[in-house]
């Protein structure tokens, strides 16, 4: 495992695109929160203090920054797609196999990268939340910390979906475009139909499930919006199911495909 991680590190260490994405991720993570903060202040003044939601105070902040971080995680998703499809375009996946790693190890290296990304993003989120959160004396900073766990699950689902797109389409441009279309449009459409046919079932689509765990904190400020209440444990189980499925599919694919 150490060797696999070392290999992935050697590949990205001097890759400018990689560092550009990491920096963009950090900037966007802070930037989106700043943006939301502005929106919150504006809403407050527009409604003369009626819609004063404490989304940047503990405990709500854990949910706010997690929701905002979801957008930045898309950048990491695109980075994952780039790193995986690079192997296909440079044919270096072949080279590594013929040099002596197994097909399984090749895929494991990518899963390890995803895990490292998740840990990195989560630590960034954790630090950022502690810095920007408004402390109230009688509330612990770790109240609402379950959202930090949900964020972890959401990222795992989101990045493994990106990985599936990379494996399926092999070419970076196509895979990235389809990933974004899926994230922003396609799953929404499917969800809409699923909800219509079988009420509430759309929630169990991969990204929607992740999204349900960390939903838009502004929603509570908007009166009359319908929310479906599902026990988080079901959603968590759904996400876990998807993760197991994606891991299984990736290994199954690599054991049978011509590379």
């Amino acid at each position: 495992m150490k060797t696999l991680l070392l290999l992935e590190w050697m590949k990205v260490r001097k890759y400018k695109t990689f560092w550009a994405f990491i920096i963009l991720f950090a900037i966007s993570l802070a930037g989106i929160n700043y943006f939301i903060h502005n929106v919150q202040i504006q809403t407050k003044s527009l409604t003369h203090g009626m819609a004063d939601i404490q989304i940047f105070s503990f405990p709500q902040i854990w949910s706010t920054t997690a929701w905002a971080g979801g957008f930045s995680v898309l950048l990491l998703g695109i980075l994952i797609i780039t790193l995986v499809t690079n192997e296909y375009s440079f044919k270096t996946h072949r080279q590594q196999i013929i040099d002596g790693i197994s097909r399984k190890q090749f895929i494991s290296g990518k899963w390890l990268t995803i895990i490292v990304f998740i840990i990195f993003a989560w630590i960034s989120y954790f630090i950022l939340t502690l810095i920007v959160g408004n402390h109230t004396e009688n509330i612990s900073v770790f109240s609402g910390f379950d959202y930090a766990g949900y964020f972890l699950v959401k990222m795992a689902v989101s990045l493994s979906v990106a990985f599936m797109f990379a494996l399926l389409f092999r070419r970076s441009g196509l895979a990235i475009a389809l990933y974004l279309v899926y994230v922003f449009i396609l799953e929404g459409i499917v969800k809409h139909f699923l909800d219509k046919i079988a009420g509430g079932l759309g929630m169990f689509l991969p990204l929607s499930a992740g999204g349900y765990l960390v939903s838009n904190p502004m929603r509570q400020a908007i009166p009359g919006i319908e929310t479906i209440h599902i026990q988080p444990v079901w959603i968590l189980l759904t996400c876990l199911g998807y993760l197991i499925l994606f891991v299984y599919l990736s290994y199954r694919y690599i054991n049978h495909a011509d590379l």
Binding site: K11, K14, Y15, K16, N86, F90, K91, T92, R94, Q95, I97, I98, D99, G100, I101, S102, R103, Q105
Partner: peptide, 21 residues
Amino acid sequence: DHTLRKQIGTLLETPNFYPYL
């Protein structure tokens, strides 16, 4: 198994390397 390939040096079809390294 795959470890045997570590004792085999292979040049297959085209040179496969990372262009940015």
